[in-house]
């Protein structure tokens, strides 16, 4: 009985159905906007007209950063009813558990949203490449590489480092998703400001600790060469850095859940 009060598949399905019936237009417009915006943006950023050299996959990296910004905005727009006291009251009184409400938003915003944005980006890269090849009549299609997600990672980095970068993005995403619940009004703007502020503060603390523990540190510099080598390629700094990257999302999600559970309107 207690488990049923926490999670019920039927209720969860009804909640997702409820969300899709209410917000389908918004999701549709978001998808269309992301597709069109991404296409225009990629087309503008891609090299045109002079094909004396090959253009490899790095041309897509800048564009992907903007795709990530789009995803971050989508995450920041989670729990859309919580921005308005009247809507928040109706949302909190919906007959489903707090866990189901949190999970449904996580699934829609972070899982489906991320897949959708990346799929749109992948399609946009293909279309914009084909468009440039056709419009500028590039004889050799191999002049512009086809986009692959693997090319977003630096090949010289280790698997652990590349995975850490992925988890860093996930952690920032979960921060945006969860912290949004701490604001009552203009949550998207406040979330954006707080995300930048937190990232900047982490940087400041790293600089501060570098100055404290390594007095030879000069200026706004992070001393990243840890002394004790734990593994041939990993030192103590890496361990700290990877721990933060890999694990912070595990703390951020319960933080958001707790806030939703304790929300008073």
């Amino acid at each position: 009985m207690e488990t049923n009060q926490f999670f019920s598949l039927k209720r969860f399905y009804l909640l997702l159905r409820n969300d899709s019936l209410i917000n389908y237009k918004m999701y549709l417009y978001t998808t269309i906007s992301a597709f069109m915006g991404g296409l225009v943006f990629l087309y503008m950023l891609m090299p045109k007209g002079y094909y004396h050299t090959n253009y490899d996959n790095t041309i897509y990296q800048t564009s992907f950063l903007f795709c990530l910004v789009g995803m971050a905005i989508f995450y920041g727009m989670s729990f859309p009813d919580m921005d308005n006291k009247i809507k928040a009251r109706s949302y909190l009184m919906l007959p489903s558990s707090t866990f189901e409400k949190f999970l449904s938003q996580f699934l829609i915003r972070m899982v489906v949203g991320s897949i959708l944005f990346m799929l749109i980006f992948w399609i946009d890269t293909r279309i914009s490449r084909l468009a440039i090849l056709a419009i500028y009549k590039v004889a050799d299609p191999t002049k512009i590489d086809i986009f692959h997600f693997a090319s977003l990672y630096t090949p010289t980095n280790t698997l652990i480092t590349n995975a850490a970068v992925t988890f860093c993005i996930i952690s920032i995403g979960t921060f945006i998703f969860s912290v949004r619940l701490y604001f009552k009004k203009n949550s998207l703007v406040k979330t954006a400001i707080s995300t930048i502020a937190v990232l900047y503060l982490i940087g400041c603390f790293m600089v501060l600790f570098s100055h404290i523990f390594y007095p030879s540190t000069i200026g706004f510099y992070v001393h990243s060469n840890g002394h004790s080598t734990i593994y041939p390629t990993i030192n103590s700094f890496d361990i700290w850095f990877y721990s933060v990257m890999y694990l912070s999302w595990l703390f951020l999600l319960p933080l958001g859940y707790y806030k939703l559970k304790e929300k008073q309107v």
């Binding site: 009060q5 009184m93 007959p95 489903s96 558990s97 559970k261």
Partner: peptide, 13 residues
């Protein structure tokens, strides 16, 4: 805010 409670209370604000 248990689901069984919420499914048996309705508020017209």
């Amino acid at each position: 805010r248990k689901p069984s409670f919420l499914s048996d209370i309705y508020m017209v604000p």
